[in-house]
Structure formats: structure tokens, C-alpha cells
């Protein structure tokens, strides 16, 4: 899978209109480089030599990737792509994970309540809250939150992940400022996925409630708290599968959300890379996102095999 994406980005970059590699090569020649110097400069930048046969270029490129060398960025003159990505990734990962976790916990709990009170007004209100939020696209939610809480009613800061007057480091004002600045983007992730968790959990709980073993637990006089645990455990199973998909989806959403909140994560980096035609950075980012999604899938499978004895070996 990673190989496929690596190959895909390689050929994508090769087929870009105007061939950025040749263009760069020519640009270097014109600015006084000898062909040799130009070639090695380009090689350092993209990870392969443009004048070689395509196949050999491809092999070199893959070889470099294996050594975690993604070439050098164009827009950030000469900075290794890897370094830029590693600088941006934590921001996105923290936002996405916090948002997913928050919405997962709240959505699952609300889903259980909505299922159990499904014939009562309170349960229906919860379900409606889920359906409504579920229907709002991520970027609309982001724009809405940004507009309401930074423009109309300026309670939360806008732009920049922390207060510029503070020194980054392990001190409370700095961490507090980080958290404060992260609230809106995290809330956007959380609110836009909350409805999905809620609705899935609700229907899952309803189906588990009809299972014979829950009736059996009732007939045996199992305590309500333990019975609740039986229900929740079993109802959560299908959600783990969606968790992986959802994390991938959230990474995709970071393109809009980080743009809206001007947050220096992967999404923002990718937007910039696209507007500056920074192909090495782009292909690096694609690769990384793929790797992240695959990692999330593997983690989910692993998690699943822990919680469900039926698929354990």
C-alpha cells in the first residue's frame, strides 16, 4: 500500500504539467550551475536524477524513501521535507487525536443513553442533536465556530497555536495557552464526528439490547451496573472498525480546519505546498498521511483482537 502510494506520487510528480524537475534543472543551469552541479542539486532535492532512464530514477527514489529521505522542499529553500513534516505532524496529530477521543467518549455515552431512553423525550433530543451535528460538513462547522467565537463573541483566540509572548517549553502558561488556542479546532473535529459515534452507538446498543444474553443476565438478576457493562462492551465492537476510518477522515479534514484556524499542522503545510507547487513536500505529505492511515488500521485490528475473543488466535 505504502509502495503503491510512493509509486503513484512519483509518477504524479513526473507527469505534472511543466515538469517541475526539468524546470528546476534548467533554472539552476541558467543561474550559473554546471550541468553536473545542477544535476546533483536536483538529485538532493527530489531524491532522484532527472536525466536517467525513468525506471532507474524510480528505483533511486524508492531507495531514498527507505532511508527516510524524502528529498528537499522547494518553498522552504533546501530544508529537508522530512524535517518540515515532522515539525508539522505533532500539531495535527494532537488535534485529531484529542478531537476523536473527545467525540468518541461523549458520543458513545450519549449513544448509550439515547438507546436506553429511546422512547422518552430526553433520548430523542439526544438523537436529534446527533443527527443535526452529523449533517454539518466539517469546514462549515469550522467556519461557524470561528465566526461565532472569534468574531462575534471573541472569547477564543484566532490563529497561531499559542500566545507569541510566551516562551515555548514545559511551563504552565505555555501549556495553558496551547490548550486554549486548540479548543476551537479540537471542538470542530469533535463536533463533526460526535453525531456519527452517537448514531452508530445507539443502533448498536439497541441491537445488543435485543440479544438473548442480555435477557439472560436480567433473568439471572445480574446487577444493572454489570449488565450495563455487558451491553456497552458488546455494542462498542462495531465502533472500533469505524475508528480507523474516522481517523483517516479527520486527517483529510485537517486541510480545511487548519486553514480556517491558521494552525501550523500537516493540513496547512499541504495547502501551502500545493500553492507553491512544492512537489517534494506534497509527495512527502501524501506518503505520511497514507502511512498514518495504515498505522491507524493496524492499531485498530490489534485493538479489536484484544476486545473480541472470537477473533483472537
Amino acid at each position: 500500500m505504502i509502495l503503491v502510494v510512493a509509486s503513484f506520487t512519483f509518477f504524479l510528480v513526473r507527469m505534472m504539467p511543466g515538469n517541475p524537475i526539468e524546470a528546476k534543472y534548467e533554472q539552476l543551469i541558467m543561474s550559473g550551475y554546471t550541468p553536473d552541479q545542477a544535476m546533483s542539486a536536483v538529485r538532493v532535492m527530489y531524491g532522484f536524477i532527472p536525466k536517467q532512464p525513468l525506471f532507474q530514477q524510480f528505483v533511486t527514489y524508492l531507495w531514498q524513501i527507505l532511508h527516510l529521505n524524502l528529498g528537499q522542499s522547494i518553498s522552504y529553500e533546501g530544508t529537508p521535507v522530512m524535517k518540515i513534516i515532522l515539525g508539522a505532524a505533532p500539531w495535527t496529530i494532537i488535534l485529531v487525536l484529542t478531537g476523536t477521543l473527545a467525540s468518541f467518549v461523549v458520543g458513545v455515552l450519549a449513544g448509550v443513553i439515547a438507546a436506553i431512553r429511546r422512547n422518552k423525550v430526553s433520548g430523542n433530543l439526544i438523537t436529534v442533536s446527533g443527527s443535526l451535528l452529523h449533517g454539518i460538513p466539517q469546514f462549515v462547522m469550522g467556519l461557524f465556530l470561528a465566526y461565532v467565537f472569534t468574531t462575534i463573541w471573541a472569547v477564543f483566540p484566532y490563529g497561531a497555536p499559542y500566545d507569541a509572548s510566551l516562551t515555548p517549553g514545559f511551563n504552565w502558561p505555555y501549556i495553558g495557552s496551547l490548550a486554549w488556542h486548540a479548543i476551537l479546532p479540537v471542538a470542530t473535529y469533535a463536533l463533526s464526528s460526535y453525531g456519527g459515534w452517537l448514531l452508530t452507538m445507539k443502533s448498536s446498543v439497541i441491537s445488543v439490547l435485543g440479544d438473548d444474553f442480555i435477557l439472560a443476565a436480567e433473568v439471572r438478576g445480574i446487577k444493572p451496573s454489570i449488565r450495563m457493562r455487558y451491553i456497552a462492551q458488546n455494542a462498542m465492537l462495531p465502533l472500533f472498525t469505524i475508528l480507523a476510518l474516522s481517523i483517516g477522515f479527520m486527517f483529510g479534514g485537517s486541510i480545511f480546519i487548519e486553514d480556517i484556524f491558521d494552525y501550523p499542522g500537516l493540513g496547512n503545510m499541504l495547502t501551502n505546498a500545493i500553492s507553491y507547487k512544492d512537489y517534494p513536500l506534497m509527495s512527502g505529505a501524501f506518503l505520511l498521511i497514507t502511512v498514518a492511515i495504515i498505522a491507524a488500521n493496524i492499531a485498530t485490528d490489534f485493538l479489536y483482537s484484544i476486545v473480541d475473543p472470537r477473533i483472537r488466535r
Binding site: 444474553f213 435477557l215 438478576g221
Partner: peptide, 24 residues
Amino acid sequence: QRRARSTELGLVFQAAQNSLNPLR
């Protein structure tokens, strides 16, 4: 009622084959 179940009245019900929590 809950306390009477299992201690006073024990029932093996018809779907006893699926009467157990599959995750425990």
C-alpha cells in the same frame, strides 16, 4: 425482584445456547 432471581428462582431459558456474554 432482581435479588429473588437466581437465589430463589432459577431459569434456564429456551435460548440458553446464547445466554452468555460472548466477550467474557
